[in-house]
Amino acid sequence: MSESQTKLLYVDDDALSREVMHVLASRVIGADITLLDDNSNFMDKVRELPAVPDVIFLDIQMRPYDGYEMLKMLRSDSTYKEATIIAMTASVMATDVQALRAAGFNGLIGKPILRQVFPGLLKQILTGESVWFVS
């Protein structure tokens, strides 16, 4: 793990989704990705991370905390107040997208993730562009 490696955090309770992201991040992009399957004591787990991630991907339909609650927790922490937090969800109806915007997410990448498109989107996100992508 080099210092220049992009550090990602992905929280999702769906094992297959976590595995797709793991392959995509580590094998396709070569990024350093941390996967969280259980968001109990979410902020404790976040604070235990060895480094602050460049981008945080959050699933929305989760327990015990859903994506919005996790976002709220992160935003209330000074470290993650301005962090880049992207929703990664299969709930991509227009109303969902509007709710995500209103809640304060920095972007959205809908499931299914398109492996050819994802690297470009991540690049855009890292350069500060707003990305709302629905496949």
Partner: peptide, 15 residues
């Protein structure tokens, strides 16, 4: 339905 179809499609398409 969309949500429930997209989630497995994510695995199918990507793997």
């Amino acid at each position: 339905m969309s949500h429930e179809l997209r989630t497995p499609l994510n695995a199918i398409i990507n793997f």
